[in-house]
Amino acid sequence: MSGSRPSKAQYESCCNEFFWCLNNVAKGIVRDQMPYAWRMYHQVVHVELEKMAEWYIAAEHDYSDLWRAIFAGCDLFRSLAVKVGTHLGYVYNEKDEKGMMRYLEMMKGETFTE
């Protein structure tokens, strides 16, 4: 995540690219060109989704506090992973999450000098 606020042009370009390229994904599915549809989705559409998600997290935290953005990203990931795991019949690994959250909290309080 760059942590910087997108310009109006970057924001509009992201929205345009996301929706405009979905038509290619849909065409590929309808034409049974699945490799093309998946490539368009992952290499173009999903990239724009990731940008918007990064901007969302940064916007929620004033584009400045990386620690807050990290913890917000962890909350979002947890929420999604639990729902996906439930849908697939998998158990979410809370032990790993809790261990990493303790580590991040510890690191957040550290000051390193050289």
Rank of each mutant, 00 (worst) to 15 (best):
residue 9 A to T: 09
residue 60 E to F: 05
residue 1 M to D: 11
residue 52 M to E: 06
residue 52 M to I: 11
residue 92 Y to I: 01
residue 95 K to G: 04
residue 30 V to S: 10
residue 83 K to R: 15
residue 38 W to T: 05
residue 85 G to D: 00
residue 31 R to Y: 13
residue 12 E to T: 03
residue 88 L to C: 10
residue 7 S to W: 08
residue 14 C to H: 00
residue 102 R to D: 14
residue 66 L to V: 08
residue 75 D to V: 05
residue 5 R to W: 06
residue 97 E to S: 10
residue 92 Y to P: 03
residue 21 C to A: 12
residue 51 K to G: 02
residue 37 A to M: 05
residue 12 E to D: 10
residue 88 L to P: 00
residue 23 N to H: 06
residue 37 A to V: 04
residue 15 C to G: 10
residue 49 L to A: 13
residue 89 G to T: 03
residue 47 V to M: 04
residue 20 W to S: 09
residue 79 S to H: 14
residue 36 Y to V: 12
residue 69 A to S: 12
residue 93 N to C: 06
residue 99 G to C: 14
residue 108 K to Q: 10
residue 24 N to P: 00
residue 98 K to A: 15
residue 33 Q to P: 00
residue 47 V to C: 05
residue 7 S to Q: 03
residue 17 E to Q: 11
residue 102 R to N: 13
residue 81 A to H: 07
residue 82 V to F: 00
residue 36 Y to F: 15
residue 26 A to I: 15
residue 21 C to V: 06
residue 40 M to K: 12
residue 45 V to N: 03
residue 94 E to W: 05
residue 90 Y to H: 04
residue 99 G to T: 13
residue 36 Y to C: 08
residue 41 Y to C: 09
residue 29 I to W: 03
residue 49 L to S: 03
residue 62 D to T: 09
residue 31 R to A: 14
residue 88 L to V: 04
residue 87 H to A: 12
residue 13 S to E: 08
residue 93 N to T: 04
residue 40 M to R: 06
residue 71 F to H: 10
residue 73 G to H: 08
residue 45 V to P: 00
residue 27 K to Q: 02
residue 27 K to N: 06
residue 43 Q to Y: 09
residue 45 V to K: 02
residue 30 V to E: 14
residue 49 L to Y: 07
residue 105 E to V: 10
residue 10 Q to L: 07
residue 6 P to A: 05
residue 9 A to H: 08
residue 32 D to Y: 10
residue 90 Y to N: 05
residue 70 I to T: 13
residue 59 A to V: 01
residue 1 M to S: 14
residue 35 P to F: 06
residue 23 N to A: 11
residue 1 M to V: 08
residue 102 R to G: 04
residue 57 I to L: 15
residue 67 W to I: 05
residue 11 Y to D: 04
residue 104 L to P: 01
residue 64 S to Q: 08
residue 19 F to V: 07
residue 22 L to I: 08
residue 11 Y to T: 11
residue 113 T to W: 09
residue 90 Y to L: 01
residue 47 V to H: 03
residue 29 I to K: 02
residue 47 V to R: 04
residue 72 A to Y: 07
residue 12 E to I: 08
residue 47 V to G: 03
residue 107 M to S: 11
residue 83 K to E: 14
residue 90 Y to T: 00
residue 27 K to P: 01
residue 16 N to D: 10
residue 59 A to K: 11
residue 64 S to A: 09
residue 88 L to T: 06
residue 33 Q to F: 07
residue 20 W to H: 09
residue 18 F to I: 10
residue 38 W to M: 09
residue 13 S to A: 10
residue 49 L to G: 05
residue 11 Y to W: 12
residue 46 H to D: 02
